[in-house]
Write a protein that binds this DNA or RNA. Structure first.
Lengths: 194, 194
DNA sequence: GCAAATTAATGATTTATTCAAG
DNA sequence: CTTGAATAAATCATTAATTTGC
């Protein structure tokens, strides 16, 4: 096997740099289209997939916060020993508003330097915005495509032809229908070490 | 507007029935291809997308477990007052092994009644399982497609042509580059009762 | 009987936790 | 130990039930 299947993505320095810069400039949860763009651009510097970008932002955000939390926790450590029920670490469920991050709002320009940046914030606001099921604001990407229901649902308006039988539990086509074991974890369901 | 934009998916009884039956027969975390199939089939009974299927299984599993946990908690309630460090609710991180679910292994037939079910369970099992980067066991779907890197990664083996420029922070194309505000968590529902 | 107000379910997102490759 | 990948838990938000006043 000359080329290791590369079990997992290994970001190149350029990719990493760009990602970090984007993060610093405020990007935190890119949506599908944004991820597409980012991926497209980063793919110039090496192999990369959309999920990599997605996960990277997820992890980076989480770990940055975690790091921050740790620091704060340290400070709290010597501020009180009895756990105050008021708010051990209150604004953790907020969107991490670290006062030292002047994110987005201006840095965006850095990202959008040479682009058109068409006014789309309220672009087609005239009409009562049609969700259109095509470009909703899915923060969770991937969904927009795949499934083909988009095509089916969009193309076939009313499923008039309901096979009014006892609705046989659909004929799965292929792909080993074996799941249940939630994930690949537990190599053989006996690790149990935890 | 004759057709409500339908902000969220509303499963038809048929869809629900099928999904539940599938769940009962053991399906818990369908992967991309499975979700595709399920979606394709269910789309016969009404509008549906892959993400709906995905979310449904996520939620159903979680809530089933939650329900179960509550019940167990109730029982524990009068079994011990001092929290035994052994296992307050031990196998909660496992894959919910409810002993009364004779899931999958045979019920699969029910699901696969009229199909070909080509031998793919261990189709290319001869080799030491090749991750193959094309049909990995992504439990999180959507990832396999989209971004086109899948194609690129699979087709283009070594990215030899790295444009060694000063890596300008890529020109985002369009789509409002506004994220950061994680969600629109206003208060509105102050039910709180939960 | 019905429509507004409340409550309960549940679809959709976000966050935290965990696992494993390097 | 760092960090990409994946899953589960927590949360939000919208729809359906249900209740309540008329």
């Amino acid at each position: 096997m000359p080329q290791t299947p590369s079990t997992r993505w290994c970001p190149t320095p350029e990719q990493l740099m760009i990602l970090e810069e984007m993060y610093r400039s405020g990007v935190r949860t890119p949506n599908a289209s944004q991820i597409q763009q980012i991926t497209a651009h980063l793919s110039l510097y090496g192999r990369i997939e959309g999920k990599n970008v997605f996960y990277w932002f997820q992890n980076h955000k989480a770990r940055e916060r975690q790091k921050l939390r740790r620091r704060l926790g340290r400070q709290h450590q010597l501020l009180h020993q009895s756990e105050g029920p008021s708010s051990p670490t209150p604004p953790l469920h907020n969107q991490t508003p670290p006062p030292n991050l002047l994110y987005q709002g201006c840095l965006q320009e850095v990202l959008t330097q040479g682009m058109n940046l068409v006014g789309k914030l309220e672009a087609g606001e005239g009409q009562e915005e049609e969700p259109a099921a095509s470009d909703a604001v899915y923060t969770q990407p991937w969904m927009t495509m795949m499934d083909g229901s988009a095509a089916a649902a969009t193309a076939v308006p009313p499923p008039c032809c309901r096979p009014l039988k006892t609705l046989d539990l659909f004929p799965t086509k292929s792909t080993g229908m074996k799941d249940e074991c939630s994930s690949s974890k537990s190599s053989s369901c006996s690790t149990s070490t935890n």
